[in-house]
Nucleic acid binder design. Structure first.
Length: 435
RNA sequence: UCCCCGAUAGCUCAAUGGUAGAGUAGGUGACUGUUAAUCACUUGGUUGUUGGUUCGAGUCCAACUCGGGGAGCCA
């Protein structure tokens, strides 16, 4: 008799097995206990009949509270009445850790659950719930797909530093920290380092945490989030748009294939995900502005899109929308100017469907030394901090291109989660740094 | 930094300025196929803090504290 994980229960029908887990829920009906077990791999049902266990085991189990740790021995049966199709008929019960006051109560169908602050204060326990478990599994699958996708395409993983000497993009607020006798900042993007790496390795990506000290209080913002940033040497805007499209299609396809149970738990409308196939619509910024105005949604050329604008743009397609060639004045200093129109730069934003907002920002990088020097000065950035970056143009400078994808926003879109804070294990927001 | 909203039982929320309520969770009991079980009974309160108006404040006013949504900014 061997210990078995709940997810593998179906492979042991007719066998007697041992399950180590926790009591996610229990319903008692007279001389029967229905236990919902979880062990990290899945949630499955066990049934304990009074006549098949000792009096003491039956009573002890009946008194055990939610989240008690239990070891069960029993026979695996296939049964259509059991969620998941299989259940354990208990023959032996051992209470490993008794719990009677678990702080997160189960919710009833016609009542709303606990509020966000209550649950976030107990995030270390909330992670055990079905929904949070499913979201973390999808997050894991996306993270694995990110690494697999780039590895299969010959990208080298070159990670960027967390401590940086200055802003990568200048405009956004950085977290400051002491660094021995001096000062350092937490990275807001690994991109500049990826440009250096791309000129060493050809095709590279970094994948790690990123920090923004913006005082944003919205469902789309965290102060610490994960970003994957590929960068390719000898590549342009069109290359990077195609890469982003292939990348998103692969992520969606992998989740659809390997996270079916999680998507069901999350009650995700999978038809919305099945619609995510190439090609994605591509519109220039100027075309978007013209269409917005044509549809009675006034918008002046030169501004950045707000949330209502993004929602409108997102409504034009069931697929991610690629908006390219943005006004130079509202984009970062390093973006390459469009040779056909000096007022715009070769950048692209990808707006996710279903109102989930921007998930990708990318660009072809300016490789002309003089242009970059002018841009650094025009943005008021400290020239000394960028000397190494300018070296990339002095020594073999060629066009590189890449993008950044926000992991949590992608998880929120694919899982259909309203708040980004549920898409990272321990969220960091402007008012929260615990647990 | 700005705008809007909120704070009442462990949790989610009600309560014309006039006795503090319900659901749920917890507790006790019943039930051999439950699916977030059901049914009966039951414990549970310094209404965020401070001050004010009033015969009387959960309710009206002010300030403060904490939080939520959004703007800006961005992944």
């Amino acid at each position: 008799m061997s210990r078995v994980y709940l997810v593998d229960l179906g492979q042991h029908v007719g066998q007697e097995v041992v399950i180590d887990g926790w009591l996610a829920n229990m319903r008692s009906k007279g001389k029967l206990h229905f236990l919902t077990l979880r062990d990290g791999t899945a949630f499955r049902q066990a049934i304990m009949s009074k006549k098949e266990v000792s009096e003491e085991e039956f009573e002890t189990c009946g008194r055990a509270g939610i989240e008690s740790a239990v070891r069960l021995r029993g026979l695996v049966n296939a049964d259509d009445r059991a969620p998941g199709g299989y259940e354990l008929h208990v023959k032996g019960f051992e209470l490993l850790a008794e719990v009677h006051d678990y702080p997160i109560a189960k919710q009833s169908s016609d009542q709303s659950g606990p509020g966000p602050d209550f649950l976030l204060d107990r995030r270390h326990l909330w992670l055990r719930s079905r929904k949070q478990h499913a979201i973390m599994r999808v997050r894991h699958r996306i993270a694995m797909t990110i690494r697999n996708f780039f590895d299969e395409r010959g990208f080298c993983n070159v990670d960027a530093p967390i401590f940086t000497p200055a802003a990568c993009e200048g405009t956004t607020t950085l977290f400051e920290t002491k660094y021995f006798d001096g000062q350092a900042y937490l990275t807001q993007s690994g991109q500049l380092y990826m440009e250096a790496a791309a000129m060493a390795q050809g095709k590279v990506y970094c994948f790690g945490p990123t920090f923004r000290a913006e005082k944003s209080k919205t469902r789309r913002h965290l102060t610490e989030f994960w970003m994957v940033e590929p960068e390719i040497a000898y590549a342009g805007l069109d290359d990077v748009m195609q890469l982003a499209e292939d990348f998103l299609c692969r992520i969606v396809a992998d989740v659809l294939e390997r996270c079916q149970e999680e998507l069901a738990t999350l009650e995700r409308d999978v038809s919305k995900l099945q619609a995510i196939t190439g090609p994605f619509p591509r519109m220039s910024y100027t075309e978007v502005v013209e269409r917005l105005n044509a549809e009675g949604h006034p918008f002046e050329w030169g501004g950045d899109f707000g949330a209502p604008d993004e929602t409108k743009i997102g409504s034009w397609s069931d697929k991610p929308m690629m908006v390219h060639r943005w006004p130079k004045d509202i984009k970062a200093f390093y973006m390459a100017p469009d040779p056909e129109n000096p007022k715009v730069v070769l950048g692209v934003d990808v707006i996710a469907p279903e109102g989930k907002g921007e998930i990708i920002g990318g660009a072809q990088r300016a490789h002309d030394l003089g242009y970059l020097e002018d841009q650094i000065a025009a943005h008021g950035l400290p020239r000394e901090a960028f000397e190494w970056y300018l070296d990339l143009r002095r020594y073999g400078g060629i066009p590189t291109a890449g993008f950044g994808l926000g992991l949590e926003r992608t998880v929120a879109w694919i899982t259909g989660t309203e708040h980004i804070r549920e898409c990272i294990p321990f969220p960091r927001t402007i008012y929260r740094i615990t647990p």
